[in-house]
């Protein structure tokens, strides 16, 4: 197959890559985010964004909920535009949809455990409409119903109710295994690398959180999924060390090599540090002249951009200080 890539890839991905090459130039630059940070209020932020792709959807937004809906609608259009119509392999489309399907299933379980309506936790980016996820299990497509049943079995306690403390660990483990399987089956080396990176990031986050909460080693071990560049056995060995030492050792392993150990063990800086790792990978993918990589890199960059815009807009609406917002800002372009 690799021998026909020079012929096959331009025919299959050429049009989408051409569009991406132009759209990449319209991704928000750091200077835009600085302007959003320095804006005096939400209305000024909206005015700044009026000349970008977010302008139309944010026009009537007044509350944090409006911002969430507007950004979700933007991402939904992006998914429709690039994932569904860019002639990408089924496995690649399925990778992104599965991610959101599991997030919605996670939301269903949390809503059930808390006794509140599921709609609060459901996003529009899954493979079926949000209303279906918010409805009864019987309404889910067969494949999703099977996954839900499998997760429910693992999450149900002795009293027959959902154990809320287990939801993230169980859903994450199953999600990472499924994403890795989809990525490996898609034939895209970049996607497989991305799936492994996802496992690494989730494992490291779980490691830091468990270590800070001082959970017993056996309890923490359940959170570490196999398939990343750092194995569950390596995490188990690091778990015995003081957190600062573990951070130092972790930055000598796998994808964490070269990172600032203090950022890695600080939950407030962790996500920003990990986003920089992902951004480095995206830069490499963008350098590929033709193939699925530039398209995937663009979709991921837009997702990261939407996250940054959400942080700044919702943060400003909530009255979070500029310095705190700046510390949460990631490089996306």
């Amino acid at each position: 197959m690799s021998r026909v890539r020079p012929i096959y890839d331009p025919l299959r991905y050429g049009y989408a890559v051409g569009r991406v090459r132009v759209l990449e130039t319209k991704l928000l630059k750091r200077s835009y985010f600085e302007r959003l940070l320095d804006a005096s209020d939400f209305a000024e932020q909206r005015r700044i964004l009026s000349e970008t792709v977010y302008g139309g959807s944010l026009e009537g937004a007044l509350t944090a909920n409006d911002v969430e809906h507007a950004l979700d609608a933007g991402l939904s259009a992006l998914y429709q535009d690039f994932l569904e119509t860019a002639n990408l392999p089924v496995g690649i489309v399925s990778y992104f949809r599965t991610l959101h399907d599991y997030e919605n299933l996670r939301g269903r379980f949390k809503a059930e455990a808390l006794g509140i309506p599921a709609a609060e936790f459901i996003g529009p980016l899954g493979s079926v409409p949000a209303e279906v996820f918010a409805g009864p299990s019987a309404g889910l497509p067969r494949s999703l119903a099977a996954i839900e049943a499998k997760l429910r079995e693992a999450l149900t306690g002795e009293d027959g109710s959902i154990v809320i403390g287990e939801i993230d660990a169980v859903v994450d483990r199953q999600l990472q295994a499924e994403l890795l399987s989809i990525a490996q089956g898609s034939g895209s080396g970049f996607l497989a690398e991305l799936a492994r990176l996802g496992i690494d990031i989730r494992n490291a986050r779980a490691f830091v959180r468990a270590r800070i909460r001082d959970l017993p080693a056996a309890s923490a071990a359940r959170w570490f999924a196999p398939g990343g560049s750092v194995t569950p056995a390596e995490y188990a060995a690091l778990y015995k060390l003081p957190l600062a030492d573990a951070g130092n050792r972790l930055t000598a392993l796998g994808v964490f090599r070269g990172l600032d150990p203090e950022a890695l063990i600080d939950p407030a800086r962790f996500d920003v540090a990990m986003d920089s790792v992902v951004t480095r990978r995206l830069h490499v993918a963008r350098m590929v002249a033709i193939g699925p990589e530039p398209v995937l890199a663009y979709v991921l960059a837009r997702e990261a951009e939407a996250r940054a815009v959400r942080t700044l807009l919702v943060g400003k609406l909530a009255g979070v200080s500029t310095d705190v917002l700046r510390s949460r800002l990631r490089d996306v372009a």
Partner: peptide
């Protein structure tokens, strides 16, 4: 030509 024309069409569709 097909390779470059596909990509060029994508670029022209946006600009």
């Amino acid at each position: 030509i097909t390779s470059i024309a596909n990509t060029a069409a994508g670029i022209v569709s946006e600009d």
